[in-house]
Simulated assay, not measured.
Amino acid sequence: MERRYMHYSSSQKILLVGEGDFSFATCLGKEFGSAANMVATSLDSEATLKAKYSDDVLFNLSDLKRRGCILLHEVDVHTMRYHPGLINKLFDRIVFNFPHAGFSDSEFSHSQIELHKNLVKGYFRSAHQMLSNCGEIHVTHKTTWPFNEWNIVELAENVGLFLVEEAFFSILFYPGYQNKRGDGNRSHFNFRVGNSSTFKFAKKLN
């Protein structure tokens, strides 16, 4: 029996990209009662995840495995369509929550913003090639300055996508989701979400 939750359905093939402690994937799995149609990935190796997030990530990974989720680690958004576990697969929803290129400089600096934009561009390019005909690519992102300087919509349009909807995001919508910094000495700390939206994109018609 199909179960729907927020923007997602248990009948959709869902790819989750850049998971931190895998709590977002775990939330969806619990709401659906199954994660059999889900693939959840991280840039970090499994060993690095355990070092960063300790027991929390172990619990989430175990729960997802029990629900049938495919778990992949060391998946880079720039090259993910060539990953052995993802090659030749198409998805109905591809999701990247709060993409971030790491803390090499201040969030306000031009160089840091360009790093973030390059990450998102790479994600869009890869995801475009992995999307089913009626599928959507989602990015949840802060909408206040300086994060609005990333120009998410323009980046998507440059790779042949168009904005379907910008939906208000609240972390309260996803019970158990812990938004982690993911980088640096405080990688296991949560960050303030503030004003954020889930941007939904689809392929432009030829």
Rank of each mutant, 00 (worst) to 15 (best):
3 R>I: 14
6 M>W: 11
7 H>P: 05
7 H>N: 10
7 H>Q: 12
8 Y>Q: 08
10 S>H: 04
13 K>A: 08
18 G>P: 00
19 E>L: 01
21 D>I: 00
21 D>H: 01
22 F>H: 07
26 T>C: 13
30 K>Y: 10
30 K>H: 06
34 S>P: 04
34 S>Y: 07
35 A>V: 09
38 M>G: 09
38 M>N: 08
42 S>M: 07
45 S>G: 14
46 E>T: 06
46 E>P: 07
48 T>A: 08
48 T>P: 04
58 L>P: 02
58 L>Y: 06
59 F>P: 04
60 N>A: 09
61 L>F: 04
66 R>W: 08
66 R>M: 05
66 R>K: 11
67 R>H: 11
68 G>P: 07
75 V>Q: 00
76 D>V: 13
82 Y>A: 12
83 H>F: 05
84 P>R: 13
85 G>M: 07
86 L>N: 11
90 L>G: 06
91 F>N: 06
92 D>G: 14
92 D>Q: 12
93 R>L: 06
96 F>Q: 04
96 F>M: 14
97 N>Q: 10
98 F>K: 02
100 H>N: 14
104 S>C: 13
107 E>W: 00
107 E>C: 03
109 S>H: 13
112 Q>F: 05
113 I>P: 03
114 E>C: 07
115 L>Q: 15
118 N>W: 02
120 V>A: 03
121 K>C: 10
122 G>Y: 01
125 R>F: 07
125 R>H: 12
127 A>L: 01
127 A>E: 00
129 Q>D: 15
133 N>I: 13
136 E>F: 14
136 E>P: 04
138 H>C: 15
140 T>L: 01
140 T>H: 00
142 K>C: 04
142 K>M: 05
143 T>V: 13
145 W>N: 13
149 E>H: 12
155 L>D: 09
155 L>N: 10
156 A>H: 01
162 F>Y: 11
164 V>C: 11
168 F>K: 15
169 F>Y: 03
171 I>M: 06
174 Y>K: 00
174 Y>W: 12
177 Y>T: 08
178 Q>I: 13
179 N>D: 05
179 N>I: 08
180 K>F: 00
180 K>E: 01
184 G>R: 03
184 G>F: 00
185 N>P: 08
186 R>Y: 09
192 R>Q: 11
193 V>T: 06
196 S>F: 02
196 S>Q: 03
199 F>W: 04
199 F>I: 01
200 K>L: 15
200 K>F: 11
203 K>H: 09
203 K>I: 14
206 N>A: 12
